[in-house]
Design a protein around this nucleic acid. Structure first.
Length: 540
DNA sequence: GACACTGGCGCG
DNA sequence: AAAGCGCGCCAGTGTC
């Protein structure tokens, strides 16, 4: 089958026009480097059987939305570019310069009202895509990236359907919450002003900094990354002063108002559904990012966060099925390290944080605080935590433990789970000798491993990247195997959300567990899914 | 008015 | 010099 370069031109973005509702205006095709065409006449929009696009998620969506036939088979130079070099830019123009040695015109340099010039521009994009593919195809194969490439291709329709179906918001509840939040914000503001003795502009870090550290002479314990005096959560907490606490209170409500209660309504469609735009390759680790809105940062921990999530609902007669992998990354760590104690804890179905606490505190009965510290260390290992980091985290959680104890605990962790240390060493050696590390699907991250930071990133990539792979495979399988009227409507890294009718909820629940707990990766640990059938996203 | 940067903070 | 990993979005601020 011959491949054809394809590029869909749409209305320009801006204002209310997003990639989701931009309309198709033209179709550029490149059958070879010399034979290209561009059509603005919809009757000429005939889609070849086998195409390559740069960002197929977008182009295929437009074809679908326009009601055109989809190609039988497709390739994507954007995915390929991401996988071949995750650090480099991925724009078509950039890639054309880099791999084809040409000097493409930028979109901004082209006059859209000049029909001939714009047609030429569109055709050139299709041609570059066509030419890039011949290069990338070889690279994917020689660099052993085909498995992850196929995964990333296959997942595109999953995101199409998920984004298209969207997630329902109870607008009335959201508005009520918004009212409460804005009232509370004013109340918290009043409190701050009262304690400050004047009406300072709390939203400005500049003003705040001058007031706290110049006027009131508080001693700032933390600097920003640019070396300025910080007024963030940690810095204010350290002041241990009613005014600082009041400012933190105030911030919780401004954050909620600015980021959520005021913003989410702007993203609702006519049916009060939200259509997040996922970028399946939005991160260097293989995780998805999400935007407009970023559903993945919707508050959840605080009381206010729970109230917010309760506004995400199932429509009348339907249910949400919320399924998350229990300790996904820690299970991946157990798999890679092959540590017998970690593996056994998971195989027995024990509470890992408790297991860790018993082992590092060396007793059979452990306190809540000991479990909490162990939990922090368990998760911290994935990020390459230091005693200092652990200490700060614990301080932030109001746990009073000395830095020496932190050193001690971390040492005991590694003395207990000896093979975890071996795993970290193996990753370090590998990244230094090869210049990259791979996740379980073969996804790569290029790092030299010359700094401590890069070694942490290498270890974290192995775990986070593999976890992302596991979630993506699950999405693929769910999309394939769920009944037709059960719909994936959201994914938050290790959590998936499904909407289906009340009647089928129990069977979909069973099926979802089955699908998510089984994959073809031959892991040494069982994956476990926590799942609930609920009416809203916050319900237990 | 558009754009970039900074500090800050939400999530896993 | 020291830094725990990965993101996107907000308001305020500074600049052209």
């Amino acid at each position: 089958m011959n491949i054809t370069g394809l590029d869909v031109e749409t209305t320009e973005f801006g204002g209310n026009i997003t990639s989701r509702n931009a309309k198709m205006e033209g179709l550029a095709l490149a059958y070879s480097k010399d034979l290209t065409e561009y059509h603005t006449d919809p009757s000429k929009w005939i889609i070849p059987e086998y195409i390559v696009a740069h960002h197929a998620k977008f182009d295929l969506l437009k074809l679908k939305q326009t009601g055109l036939n989809l190609p039988i088979k497709f390739e994507d130079t954007l995915i390929a570019a991401h996988l071949i070099d995750e650090n480099d830019g991925h724009g078509l123009k950039h890639l054309a310069r880099k791999y084809l040695g040409v000097q493409p015109k930028n979109y901004k340099e082209v006059d859209r009202t000049d029909v001939e010039a714009f047609s030429e521009y569109a055709k050139t994009d299709a041609k570059y895509t066509y030419l890039l593919w011949t290069k990338f195809q070889k690279e994917l194969k020689s660099q052993d990236l085909n498995r992850v490439y196929e995964l990333e291709k296959k997942i595109i329709p999953v995101f199409h359907d998920m984004e298209d179906y969207g997630m329902m918001v109870d607008l009335q509840s959201l508005e009520e919450l918004g009212k409460y939040v804005s009232e509370q914000r004013l109340e918290k503001q009043r409190k701050v002003w009262e304690l400050a003795g004047e009406e300072i502009f709390i939203d400005s870090t500049k003003v705040l900094k001058e007031f706290l550290y110049d006027r009131l002479k508080f001693r700032c314990k933390k600097l920003t990354k640019k070396g300025n005096l910080s007024t963030d959560n940690e810095a204010l907490l350290a002041l241990n002063h009613p005014l600082a606490n009041a400012i933190l209170d105030y911030r919780e409500f401004t954050k909620m108002e600015n980021s959520f209660t005021n913003k989410l309504p702007l993203h609702l469609d006519e049916n009060n559904r939200i259509h997040t735009d996922y970028n399946p390759l939005g991160t260097v680790t293989g995780r998805c990012s999400s935007r407009s809105p970023n559903l993945q940062q919707t508050s959840s921990h605080s009381e206010l966060g729970k109230k917010l999530r309760s506004c995400f609902v199932a429509p009348e007669g339907k249910k949400l099925i919320v399924a998350d992998f229990s300790m996904q990354e820690l299970r991946v760590l157990a798999h890679y390290s092959n540590d017998p104690l970690l593996l056994n804890s998971f195989k027995r179905g024990d509470d890992l944080h408790e297991t860790t606490a018993k082992l590092i505190f060396n007793r059979s009965k452990i306190s809540k605080e000991e479990r909490f510290i162990s939990k922090l260390i368990n998760f911290g290992v994935i990020y390459g935590i230091s005693p200092d980091g652990l200490h700060k985290r614990l301080q932030g959680e109001k746990v009073k433990i000395s830095i020496y104890d932190c050193i001690n605990f971390i040492n005991r962790y590694f003395n207990t789970y000896k093979k975890v240390k071996d795993f970290l060493d193996t990753v370090s050696t590998a990244v230094r000798s090869r210049g990259y590390v791979r996740s379980i699907t073969g996804r790569r991250r290029h790092l030299t491993g010359e700094t401590k930071r890069e070694l942490r990133q290498a270890a974290n990539f192995t775990i986070q990247g593999t976890s992302a792979d596991i979630t993506k495979i699950s999405l693929l399988n769910l999309h394939k195997e769920l009944p037709k009227d059960a719909h994936l409507i959201g994914v938050v890294h290790d959590e998936v959300i499904i909407e289906c009718s009340e009647e089928m909820a129990e069977s979909v629940k069973t099926l979802t567990i089955e699908i998510m707990e089984n994959n073809d990766f031959d892991l040494r640990v069982p994956m476990k899914v926590d799942i609930k059938v609920v009416d809203n996203w916050s319900e237990k």
